[in-house]
Design a protein around this nucleic acid. Structure first.
Length: 376
DNA sequence: TCTGGGGTCCTAGGACCC
DNA sequence: TCTGGGGTCCTAGGACCC
């Protein structure tokens, strides 16, 4: 299928691909940093995450050697150990990861003024105004990779395409240390053979749903009748359908706008169980402290407070309460959490495996409001 | 196998208002 | 007596991402 015979479904604007976007993703970031710091780890299967002593928790990142055993992010440590008994486990030096991440983002900034950091180990660069065509973009990407390696001794995978999402998908198809370019006229041929799960947002559940209609690849979905897709898979299905057809759904206005934070939360899984509510409260209290501290650093106020409780059988409940106005007080969080917790007071505290607190409905405090709070 | 922690976005129902 | 319609906000839960 070529772009030309998709036109029935596209408005003119949606077929315009006048941007050149680069996506960069550091390869096995946490594990790669550990290997750099400690060369004898280079050739052994390695995971960052979990508790090496109790063998609890999940894999945060693993190196490519560990992936050979079928280990992947999010896998329980216990399971990883069964697949590979001589696995090396590291808790992780997150302060160092943050420093390295910052240093790399600085390098990226140099290559384009329009940039969006999408996480610790990934970012998008808008190259539209920086290069004149995809060949120039390739040259720039090679330079960028060399630059990152020279500075931080880390490799990355890069995708270059007319939209952010296509650039990301492109980078996924050649890892580690890859560079994949998808030009506007190549979109359909590039997408069609790929598995549907390559689409960010299509996870296990959606893949299962799609498989009932014999949809396994992006091409399968692209062929699915337009009339049925919305009816069968809803708004989300339609969005995915448009995406696999190479439809340009990204709004140029907010593509590189850094959006405001929507929530601040902290949760703790208790590896040793608490016998009394008092012991539990010490934990919750300190959780609230850190949340409020983080909120203050960001000069924000909140309106909604959410409590999350997970029992040892993994049953999870969330209870929320919204205040009538924006607030910065720590006391309010405490009283509301206390109130929300009442519902669970007849349960045994030792049956609780996790407690979390979240503030949301956030708003930046402007200067006039700041003066007010100082006043009272 | 026994399942972290920090997030975002979506859905669906109910309350409430005009 | 059998009961509109749209908008917005709130709550609970779930899928998904890194």
């Amino acid at each position: 299928m070529t772009l030309a015979n998709q036109e029935v479904y596209f408005s003119e604007k949606e077929q315009t691909f006048d941007s050149i976007i680069l996506y960069m993703d550091l390869d096995a970031f946490f594990a790669a940093v550990e290997m750099r710091e400690n060369p004898e780890l280079s050739d052994v299967p390695l995971v960052v995450g979990g508790n090496p002593k109790t063998k609890q928790g999940v894999v945060s990142t693993c190196n490519y050697e560990a992936r050979k055993y079928g280990i992947h992010s999010g896998m329980p440590i216990n399971q990883a150990l069964q697949l590979c008994p001589h696995l090396t486990m590291i808790r992780g030096s997150f302060k160092l990861y943050n420093e390295v991440s910052k240093s790399i983002m600085k390098i990226l900034e140099y290559y384009s003024p329009t940039m969006k950091v999408a996480g610790n180990d990934e970012a998008y660069l808008d190259l539209t105004e920086v290069v004149s065509d995809y060949e120039e973009a390739r040259t720039l990407a090679v330079e960028l990779k060399d630059d990152i390696y020279a500075t931080e001794r880390l490799t990355c995978s890069i995708g270059i395409a007319p939209t952010k999402i296509l650039a990301k998908i492109a980078s996924e198809t050649d890892k580690p240390d890859g560079l994949v370019i998808v030009k506007p006229l190549e979109i359909a041929d590039f997408m069609n053979p790929l598995k549907i799960t390559i689409i960010p947002g299509v996870g296990k559940k959606s893949a299962e749903l799609f498989s009932k209609d014999k949809i396994f690849t992006c091409g399968d979905l692209a062929k699915f009748p337009y009339q049925l897709i919305h009816q069968k898979f809803g708004k989300y299905g339609l969005k995915t359908w448009k995406l696999v057809r190479g439809y340009n759904t990204e709004k140029t206005e907010d593509k590189f706008l850094n959006s405001e934070r929507k929530s601040i939360s902290e949760e703790r899984t208790f590896f040793e169980r608490y016998k009394t509510w008092e012991e539990m409260w010490i934990q919750i209290d300190s959780t609230i402290d850190t949340i409020i501290a983080r909120m203050k650093v960001k000069h924000m106020s909140y309106k909604t407070i959410t409590l999350k409780i997970r029992f040892k059988n993994f049953e999870t409940y969330t209870r929320a309460h919204s205040l009538s106005s924006y607030n910065t007080s720590e006391k309010h969080v405490r009283t509301v959490v206390q109130k929300l917790l009442e519902e669970f007071e007849n349960k045994k505290p030792e049956d609780i495996r996790l407690v979390g607190v979240k503030i949301s409905n956030l708003r930046k405090i402007d200067n006039s409001q700041k003066t007010l709070t100082q006043f009272f």
